[in-house]
Design a protein around this nucleic acid. Sequence first.
DNA 1: TCCTTTGCTATTGAAACTGTAGCGATGCTA
DNA 2: TAGCATCGCTACAGTTTCAATAGCAAAGGA
Lengths: 109, 109
Amino acid sequence: MKAARKTTTAVRGSRSGRPIMALLDLLGRRWTLRIVWELRDRALTSRALRQACDDASPTVLQARLKDLKDAGLVENMPSEGYRLTARGRELMTAFGPLSDFAERWGRRK
Amino acid sequence: MKAARKTTTAVRGSRSGRPIMALLDLLGRRWTLRIVWELRDRALTSRALRQACDDASPTVLQARLKDLKDAGLVENMPSEGYRLTARGRELMTAFGPLSDFAERWGRRK
DNA sequence: TCCTTTGCTATTGAAACTGTAGCGATGCTA
DNA sequence: TAGCATCGCTACAGTTTCAATAGCAAAGGA
């Protein structure tokens, strides 16, 4: 029997000791990538972020924001809203070429 | 009311005409990133891939492999198993710095 | 005070995922 | 050729997660 995912801190794959697995698991949860993407170049309030994410349900968004905060990728600035931490921006840098790829990929078929 | 996700072809965000959204949605489904990662430098048979993915249930894996095939990122070689297409490898390149980031990120706290 | 907007939680029904069993097909090996 | 193992893949039931709303308390403006 596989251990159930702890709802709060740990991410699946953490046990392996391979950070990449933990990261892939974190980012592989619905809306997580999108949230990071939307915050890539600006801070957004909770509700603005929700709008940016096609009005995703606040339930999941709050859960993801918690995950991302726990992971140290996102922080909540009192009167500014949510934004990427230095680490979060570092991650976005790692994702840099992704947008270009998406463009090429989008023209497939 | 948001349209329900079509179970087969389209990905959420396709309507926006922004490929990046469609891509983020595709990659944001559970196990998708992991599958691409496991195939990054080798072909794997269905069962080997399953092992590599912490024995994830075949149900989801098959579904994801279909998604990835439809997206043109993965292909099924008759006697070799699944492997990334040229496009899939292109995507992995875009993810290149991710592993390094994961290492640094894993040492957080 | 009244009204709005904020971040966030509650609730319920729908959808997705897990874990397991097992099918038909294929390829051994004797 | 029979027996057995392995393959890709599917079925099913139980659990978890998500979606879509509604609505709360707090903060602020008019």
